[in-house]
Simulated scan of single mutants.
Amino acid sequence: MKKYFQGCAVNKYVNITSVFTIYEKIFEDTYYFDGESHDFWEFVCVLDGSLGVTAGEDVCILERGQSVLHRPMEFHRLWSEKKTEPHICVISFAADVMPQIKEKQFQLTEEEYNTISGLMERAGSIFNRDREILVKGVHSGKEAESQIFFNTFESFLLSVLTEKTPGMDAYVSVSADNYRSIVRTLEKHIAEHLTQADIAGLCNMSPASLKKTFSKYAGIGIMTYFTQMKIRRAMELLKEGCGINETAEVLGFCDRNYFSTVFKRTTGESPANYLRKQQQ
């Protein structure tokens, strides 16, 4: 008698669909990057030296073997710390499956550190890169190696995202605490239409002090940051099934047309197109 077995489907916890950059770089001790946000994930690891990082409301100093994972549309910026020349590696990617994560900074084990170092050493022989940064394709005959590369990176992410390691200490200073307070205030009032004076009042700061503090850690204007925060939340709402009109109203935009203009300027596509992609 034949026996029939029903297989057990295994859902992926991390599934990378494309990669944008793979590179490592050594910065000068005076390096300062104004910051950016984009619609893909970005993993940054310090191989040597000390690196200052702003990631959303978080401000931290990363040392050798420490890393940060930036979510899509999360504002972040980098700078050299402690008069060192930080040596970092970066992999930015898109994924259709990623876990909900609370912690964004991770302390790598020596084995994990060696894994990411090994991936960076092999990247040049596998991928065709523009200026050794932007991934343009896979070298002919290296298709199997490219799959191994991303299988290894996915396994690496699974390891760091599921480990129960102690949280890393936040950067401690009065200005850093004020910055965190400002971002939390913006999050609390994300549905409102606020001016810079309104935000200063809510944070019990003068407009000048607000501007100085925010510029130090964000590198962009607070109103630009607030708009990007609203659009990031809009993407989440649209993905959850909210309509365009409802999303615009919830986030304090005066009308749908203005919301659509700001959404496209920030993300590169209209909310209608983004919504269609989520429904496919």
Rank of each mutant, 00 (worst) to 15 (best):
L108E: 00
I101Q: 03
L157H: 01
T185I: 03
N114C: 06
E121H: 12
A197N: 12
Y171K: 06
S209A: 15
Q147K: 15
N128E: 14
A197K: 08
E143D: 11
T152L: 10
N114A: 11
D198N: 14
A176T: 02
K104L: 11
K136H: 06
G167E: 14
N128P: 02
L157V: 05
Q100D: 13
I148Y: 07
I190P: 01
S181A: 13
M168A: 04
D130E: 15
L119V: 05
A170R: 10
H193D: 14
S140N: 13
G137T: 03
L194T: 02
Q107F: 03
A176I: 05
S209E: 14
G201C: 07
D169T: 12
G141F: 05
S155A: 14
K211G: 01
Y171R: 07
F156I: 04
L202M: 11
A144P: 01
H193Q: 13
Q196D: 09
I133M: 12
F153Q: 03
D198C: 07
R180A: 10
A200T: 05
T152A: 09
F149Y: 07
E145Q: 10
K188S: 11
E145A: 10
D130R: 15
L108N: 01
G141C: 03
V135E: 02
L161W: 05
T165Q: 12
V160G: 00
A176H: 07
R129P: 01
S206K: 05
R131F: 04
E187W: 03
E192T: 01
V172A: 15
G137Y: 03
V172H: 14
V174S: 15
M120R: 04
Y113L: 13
V138I: 14
V138D: 04
Q100H: 13
E111N: 11
F106M: 02
Q107S: 11
D198Y: 02
F127I: 04
L157M: 12
Q100G: 13
R129C: 07
S125L: 05
S175M: 09
P207A: 08
V174G: 10
E154V: 08
E145F: 02
K104Q: 12
I101W: 04
K136E: 13
S140F: 12
C203E: 05
E163W: 07
N128W: 09
G124S: 11
R122K: 14
A176C: 07
K102Y: 09
K104S: 12
A170S: 15
L161G: 03
T115R: 00
K142E: 12
F106S: 00
S140R: 11
F149D: 01
S175C: 08
I148G: 01
L186M: 11
D169I: 05
Q105T: 11
I116D: 00
F150G: 04
T152I: 08
A197T: 15
F150W: 09
E187C: 07
D177N: 13
I116A: 03
L108A: 04
S173E: 06
T165K: 15
V135Q: 00
P166Y: 02
S125H: 08
T165E: 12
H139D: 08
